[in-house]
Amino acid sequence: MQNLYLPYQMRIEKIVEESPEKDLKTFELSFLDSQDAVDCKYLPGQFAEVSILGIGEAPFGIASAPCETGLVRFSVKKAGLFTENLHQAEVGDIIGLRGPLGNSWPLEKLKGKDIVIIGGGFAFTTLRSMIRFIIEPKNRKDFGQVDIVYGNRNPGQMLYKEELEEWLTRKDLNLHLTIDKPAEGWQNYVGFVPQITEQVIKPSHNAVSLVCGPPIMIKYTLPVLEKLGLNPERIYTSLEMKMKCGIGMCGRCNIGSKYVCKDGPVFSVAELEKLPSEY
């Protein structure tokens, strides 16, 4: 058995500067050892610990989808010591990956259902993984209608701009992009995510919703979804916490008796309602 703390070695293949503020980058990584690519099987919604030798390790949601074989993608906002260092990395640098960790979006419960995806800001990563998973030809028949609302403060902050352009033209999903305030040349919606959600989403009786974004967006979006007829059992979100081990041992990422790293990061709103609001 491989030691739990030993990371896969990854080469940075591509770095995409995602926002004009230059505080958001997407890193595309490949496995140095081909066997690792086979062993590292993940599902949309899972996360991994990314490491830089001599600096440390931090958890990030996996933004790529399992069908994109051989590569793993993360989008990282510059915020603290580790992310500052990661942002200085260059193509060709070798970093570590430990994972996949945590549960995933509830794939079994999503099968055969209409999917409502609500995302905001740079928390769109694992939602992007889920969407990419759904539209993979061999998976698409497993899901019903797919409606997406993705909002940002301004157009420049949209993650994965090229891909979003392509998704806007697709017939097998309905993508609604929105920004907070009008901007020159912006052809899509203007308004906050909860507002646009209320306007464009008409969930069917069997719809399930996946929500990920800044806390303020989540706070105002959940009542909208409930008003639209989605009960807390049918709304899922993904949480973030400071983590170290990622495997339920180091003791810091708990909310009540649940560890976000091992029991989460994905929880239904019904599950969260039973936990103390300490997150």
Partner: peptide
Amino acid sequence: CHCFDITDNQQG
């Protein structure tokens, strides 16, 4: 009590 931290030191 079993809580722990994991860090990299400068000695490899």
